[in-house]
């Protein structure tokens, strides 16, 4: 706990140092005179953009794609993962297929999704679901299988059936696994939501990034990158915060 008061200033210091290095490199250093804008002009652009409703629309569209995709993936993956985890046969037989889909980068199916959905929000949502649903299901199944057999047998001795075992033992036991899956998924959802715009033309920050790039608006490009970074950081902080609250028993 003694490191806690230091954490925020330490983070700030490294951010300021990074900005300084950026500023120096683009003013006097090797990046001076290139298409990389200076830190100050990027920050100024970012400040301007914060007063434009288009920026907030884009942020919201990106968050929507990530969020809807994430929620749909959770709604599918957790029940499916529980069912798979409950049966040894289902676990072993689906593992291969799920691991196969897990490693396919969503970017390779973008051409198909463009054909089906067009460059829309739905396409982004679909890509996000595809990117995370398999990993999350596998993670849930692992967690469900990890429930302590002693605990399950205790419950059986007390006459508690399958449903109660799942609700009171298997699901809580799986929750640290699910939490890890969710932490990874949330980051992946944000990245894929941007890629959907950048490569697939779906609306949002990714699409803005693509436009700014092709129009040579370098400061805008870098300002969007900064927004994405801040957004990603905020989301992952939120997840960690919720995780500590909800899965309190693993802390000690």
């Amino acid at each position: 706990m003694s490191g806690k008061p230091l954490r925020i200033p330490a983070g700030l210091v490294s951010a300021v140092v990074a900005l300084l290095i950026w500023q120096i490199a683009t003013t006097w250093g090797p990046l001076a005179g290139t298409s990389v804008p200076t830190a100050t002009s990027t920050l100024a652009e970012l400040w301007n953009m914060l007063f434009m409703s288009e920026t907030w629309d884009s942020i919201w569209q990106t968050i929507q794609m990530a969020l809807y995709g994430f929620l749909i993936a959770v709604a599918i993956a957790i029940p499916v993962g529980i069912l798979i985890g409950l049966s040894r046969f289902a676990f072993i037989s689906t593992k291969f297929t799920f691991d196969f889909f897990k490693v396919i980068p969503p970017i390779v199916i973008i051409p198909i999704t463009i054909l089906v959905f067009g460059p829309t929000l739905q396409m982004g949502v679909f890509l996000v679901v595809f990117a995370i649903v398999f990993a999350l299901a596998v993670q849930t199944a692992y967690g469900v299988r990890d429930a302590d057999p002693v605990l399950i047998e205790t419950m059986r001795c007390y006459g508690m059936g399958r449903a109660k075992q799942v609700l009171f033992a298997r699901l809580p036991a799986a929750s640290p696994f699910i939490a890890i899956g969710i932490r990874i998924s949330v980051s992946a959802a944000m990245i894929v939501a941007v890629v959907a715009g950048l490569v697939g033309g779906a609306p949002g920050l990714g699409h803005d990034l693509l436009l700014a790039q092709t129009n040579g608006q370098n400061t805008v490009t870098f300002a969007i990158v900064l927004i994405l970074g801040i957004l990603g950081l905020a989301v992952s902080r939120l997840v960690v915060f919720l995780q500590r609250r909800l899965i309190f028993w693993t802390a000690s």
Binding site: D148, V150, L151, T154, F168, P172, S175, W249
Partner: peptide
């Protein structure tokens, strides 16, 4: 430790 539920 294994037969009581730490989350309850």
């Amino acid at each position: 430790t294994r037969s009581l539920m730490p989350w309850l």
